[in-house]
Design a binder for these strands. Structure first.
Ligand code: SF4
Ligand code: SF4
Lengths: 171, 171
DNA sequence: TATAAAACGCATTATGAATGCATGTTTGAT
DNA sequence: ATCAAACATGCATTCATAATGCGTTTTATA
């Protein structure tokens, strides 16, 4: 009998055909958000006359990530003008905007990419001319982003001190 | 300069590092919906004293899909008790419920799998204890499904005659 | 000038969806 | 009884792409 469990296609007691991860944000996107949170948490610090620059190495040490992947995300964030990057010795990067001006919807849409959540044309689906589904899903996607647009990087800073402590103690 | 285009990480004129497909529903899920639409479109037909059974071969011919993948989806739909499958000669499958009783939210959630849209624990993210993001994304996901729950398979049948014609003429 | 940092490009790996294939099982028709 | 047509099952393989790794180049500063 079907037990309603998720992620389980075949029920055959011993041998279970396990299912994938459903739709999910890319790590790439989450890494970008972590970087922004990292920067914001320290900026929210007391009197920062000199906002210390963060470096890729720092991020990687803190979160245990691959330097190269982070490298790309940082570069991307820089091109989006969400952070300012500085090359050369003592370089690094810092927020280019105030946290309240960095919309989560924008960040996620940009880092994740903005493709349709359902692909109808490659390969071509014969139902396309009379299909209501694609429109429904597309509107659902937009609702998701509309919801996200209520939040900003500042919304992620409600526990800024705790975050700052975690970040500074994590190896 | 950053041109705001999607899917384009490196702008370097000639050599562009192209980006993936963002978050997307699996083909598996869409195939399931196509199958349901196929069944519903013919059920919506005139006086069907005998609701003709559809077969996997039929679906594959119509949509140009792999028999094996469809096989699995049909099986899954059967276990979800959305369709009734009949083995043996002259077998096939048909809707087990009325289209208006088949919620798109349910179908998509089940076929797609119901994992979190953001993975925080594997590997473990140090920010987790103080992170607001995961909750925001989780609520966004639920909003998406809440929205989908407004619709049923019947909602996809507003152009049933056109669908039926497409399906019966598509090789 | 040496060094530390990001920028850039490309190669490789890891993961999982998508697909292929072979066999088993059920059921109606002959 | 037998056959053939359909779904059920299990596993192997392919393919796409995210994720990662590595090396070089550029920039800035001490
Ligand atoms: S069924 Fe509708 S949504 Fe799915 S691929 Fe075909 S046209 Fe697109
Ligand atoms: S940053 Fe927040 S959402 Fe992203 S992985 Fe860490 S805990 Fe989860």
């Amino acid at each position: 009998m079907f037990d309603g469990d998720q992620g389980l296609l075949y029920y055959n007691a011993s041998k279970m055909y396990l299912f994938g991860q459903s739709m999910q944000l890319k790590k790439y996107t989450d890494y970008g958000l972590r970087i922004l949170m990292y920067l914001a948490s320290f900026e929210a610090d007391e009197n920062c006359a000199e906002p210390k620059l963060a470096t890729i190495r720092e991020i990687c040490d803190t979160f245990g990530l691959s330097a190269n992947h982070v490298n790309k995300v940082v570069h991307h964030l820089g091109r989006l003008e969400l952070i300012e990057t500085r090359r050369g010795k003592n370089g690094g990067f810092l927020l280019a905007k105030k946290p309240e001006d960095i919309s989560l919807a924008f960040v996620i849409r940009q880092l994740e990419g903005d493709e349709k959540w359902i692909e109808c044309e490659n390969p071509y689906c014969v139902a396309l001319p009379a299909c209501e589904l694609k429109g429904i899903v597309a509107r659902g996607k937009e609702l998701f982003y509309d919801y996200l647009s209520q939040y900003s990087l500042k919304s992620l800073m409600v526990k800024a001190p705790q975050l700052r402590q975690i970040f500074s103690t994590a190896s």
